[in-house]
Every structure is written in C-alpha cells, then in structure tokens.
Simulated scan of single mutants.
Amino acid sequence: MKLKFQFTLAFMLSVLSLICFSGIAILISGSKIVAFDNYIISFIQGVESPGLTVIMKCFTFIGSTPSVTVISLFSLFFLYKVLKHRTELILFISIIVGSPILNELLKLIFHRARPDFHRLIEINGYSFPSGHAMSAFAVYGVLSFLLWRHIPTRWGRTLLIVISITMILAIGISRIYLGVHYPSDVIGGYFASGCWLAIAIWFYQRYQEKKFEQKRPTQSKK
C-alpha cells in the first residue's frame, strides 16, 4: 500500500512539474514575464555587498559541475558502502547524469540569452533553464528521497529537508544575484529538474512494486 501511494505521488508530481515548467516556458516565449524578472532581480541585487558577493560565489561554486561531481561520488560511496543499497545507486546515477543532459537539450530548444546587465561573473551559453538550479534540485532532491527512509528520528528528517531546501534555494538565488540568470530561469530549472526527478522515482517505485509482488507469492507459500 505504501509503495502504491509513493508510486502515485511521484506520477502526480511529475505531471504538476511539467505543467508548471510549460507555463513558465510559454510566458518566456511571449515576453510576459519581463516585469516579474526585473522586479526580483532589482530586489536581490539591491542588497549587494562585498561579503554577500563572496557568499553567493561560494554557493555558485557548490552548484558547479566539479562540486556536483565530488558530492555525487561521495554520495555513491556512502550509499554503496554504508547503506548497502545497490538499486538506489542506479536511481541516483540516472538522476544526476540525466539532469545536465536534459538541461542542455532545453537550452538548445529555447535559446534564451542571459541577462546583460550588472554581471558579477562572466559566463557563456544560453540562460533558460538554469543548469545550476537543475543540478541543485536533482542532487539534493534525490539525496533527500534516498536518505529519508534511513533516518529514524523526526528531527533528523526535518534537518535533512531544511538543509536540502536551503542549498537548493541558495544556489538558485546566487545565480540571480551574480547576474547570470533571470529568476524565471531558476524557477524553470527547478520545475524541469522536479519533473525529471519525479519521473525517475516513478520508475524506481514501479520496479520496487513489481519486486514486492514477485516476493509475495513466495512468502505466502511459506
């Protein structure tokens, strides 16, 4: 019953994320989100300071490919050696590898130019959706899903969710603060990655459900 609920929830979240991403993509294509982007950019960059810039650059580095690679390798080692769950490794690798591939495909489809005002760092490539936002959501989203069941206490699970949400939001906001992404790029990245994460979990839960159903006849015979 629990597996069926998780299976249904993952499917519903994937559909919801896809709808939300599609809505943002339509608004961007019709240039109907410019006022929103400008307002959020003005608000976030309005609190600029030397110290905050250093912090934001640190979060951007944490969300970069080299950092994500290190975090992923450490997580794979932990899942394999400590938790002894090999099936979870396949889910983790699929999400982490699939996220940047999906990001590049989407960027090639939408061809959105990056903001060209008040950049604190220089970067090339298209803007929508944000690769950092997608990677952050994918990494901390899948880690939350995989580690949740192994944490017995409520405060431990709460801490896991708080840390994950904080990292996801901080990495996304850092891209807006540094002037290399529009807010809609970041939000779109969250929804795109959320859709991919939910679809991957859907297949994983489907596999777990089939595995459970195969074991059940054997257990009933005993």
Rank of each mutant, 00 (worst) to 15 (best):
K4C: 01
K4L: 14
S22E: 08
F61C: 05
L120P: 05
R114F: 08
G131T: 02
D185C: 04
V34H: 09
H150D: 11
K81I: 07
K81R: 14
L3S: 07
G98Q: 12
K211E: 15
F191A: 12
Q6E: 14
I93A: 12
S75M: 13
R154S: 13
R175C: 12
G51Y: 07
L143W: 06
Q208Y: 01
G63T: 07
L89E: 13
F145A: 11
G98N: 07
L83Q: 08
L169Q: 00
L197M: 12
G125L: 06
I121D: 09
F77C: 14
V180D: 05
S193I: 06
Q45G: 04
T87L: 14
S29M: 02
G172D: 06
H118L: 13
G141W: 06
L160E: 13
L13C: 15
S164P: 04
S22P: 00
W148R: 05
G131S: 05
C195W: 08
V82M: 11
H111C: 01
L159Y: 04
Q45V: 09
M1Y: 11
L79S: 03
T60Y: 00
V162D: 00
H132I: 06
Q214I: 10
K57F: 05
C20W: 03
I171A: 02
F36I: 11
S29C: 00
Y80W: 15
Q219R: 12
S130T: 02
L159V: 08
G51E: 06
I26A: 11
V68C: 11
V82W: 12
T218I: 15
K32Y: 07
V186K: 00
F78D: 00
I168C: 04
Q205N: 14
V162F: 14
L197H: 09
I161A: 15
